[in-house]
Nucleic acid binder design. Sequence first.
RNA 1: GGGCCGCUAGCUCAUCUGGUAGAGCACCACCCUUUUAAGGUGGCUGUGCUGAGUUCGAGUCUCAGGCGGCUCACCA
Length: 486
Amino acid sequence: MSDKVDQQAPAKDEKDFILERKERLKKLIEMGIEPYGRKFVRTGTMKEYTDGFEEGKQVTVAGRVMAWRGHGKTVFADLRDRTGKIQIYARKDELGDAVFELFGCIDIGDVVGVSGKLVKTRTGEVTVHVETFTFLSKAMMPLPEKWHGLKDIETRYRQRYLDLITNEDVRAVFMTRTRIVSLIRKFLDDQGYIEVETPMMQALAGGAVAKPFKTHHEALSTDLYLRIAPELFLKRLIVGGLEKVYELNRNFRNEGISRRHNPEFTMLEIYAAYEDYGTMMQLTEDLVVSVCGVLGIDLKTGIPGIDLTTPWRRVSIYDALKEHTGIDFKTCGNVKEAAVKLGVEFDKTAKDHDVVNEIFETCVEKKLVNPTFITDYPIVLCPLAKAKKEDPSVAERFELYVNGQEIANAYSELNDPAIQLENFLRQVEGTGKEIDADYVRALEHGMPPAGGLGIGIDRLVMLLTKQDSIRDVILFPQLKPEKKEC
RNA sequence: GGGCCGCUAGCUCAUCUGGUAGAGCACCACCCUUUUAAGGUGGCUGUGCUGAGUUCGAGUCUCAGGCGGCUCACCA
């Protein structure tokens, strides 16, 4: 479909309407008019004037021409900015023949600035009665269809600007994303957390298990990896005494792309010294409740089919499994036999706890619609977490599931360097991979007990904006590059 | 990587079983001094994703490729 997308096609292929627009552009230039304008001082936004209408108020606004309704000696047009839409109205008898003709050189899609008085038409629509106008940017390309908008999914992602111009709901989603991110920062800042930035390029891609992207630094003559998680660096800062830190930024994982996975995605990681995973559970609830409050999302009814009312359910992974499979895996003698019976596929060489995890993902995960904290993960699945005092076989850890997908992951951080070293060594056994020895060294200097939390921001935004695909909450999702035509 | 589905005008979509493509919007011309999916009259618009094959004839059938979507696999 690459030919559907404009890419500076040679002149011979240009459509009539583009040639016509180029002609008009030439005409403007010949008249000494700049088709691509300069700094333009506005007195306010569309929303300010449509919401707070004042008859006769002199205003200057700027925006993109979205619709054009000519009536012979008058013209109505719609101008849109980031905040909304306002109608403009021009009359030949007021502007004069020459100026009115110039006004007629405006095409749909152009960015223009207009000055005039605010009036209401007889149907009550707030309108700028145009006295002067300025070309700010002539559009050479036509806009997508005004009524149906831009639907083609590929074009929407590849030419997101068209999607944003045309589809108001898309714009709203991304405005909401921006607000969510900024509200989260404010929430954490207000609680004394400090935002830090740790390396995106790491010699060892640690803190999670995922295939990293590899790159190379010439001057250091060394291979580096794009980070798969900031965790190990953030905890070094806990060792360093920063006590309450967070980082809200990109992670990169060189794995499959799907409705729920983008190679680069935004992760929030939070660490608090002297706390534990219980604190993080509370923090997770508080954070979501706070964000919903500001956004005006009712916890009970705001997201159809999902009840966000706190406190959220807390259930151990074994109880959740029992509930959905009828099998108690804590006492179950033959896990693999149970998996076969449940129709869950697994690697024959996998260990029992991996199979249990597999069963959880297949049989339970999708059914966790309302927010649910799953706790008591087998400690072997959590090499960076502290074991429960009363039951060392499970970790002080939870994962939060909402709408069948994992949104957050947290634990009481393991701060025993000896156990950490053991866990690392067990992890890399037989893989030929290196362990992060400096992280162990950092722990040897003493890390206060701490709670750590990771929240997938894209997935949180998906939830709060009711989007089914991660691509609809990422402005420029990763796609195959367009094929260049030769 | 596997399976299924999609790709037709700038955009949104039609084109039943094979007979060389249409509508609306946009665009162009003319008319129209409060319209708002403005209206009226007339007009222009195509590499039917690409390539090969079958056929007298392919947008339509077959094969290969491209891009996308969903899904499975992968994925702490």
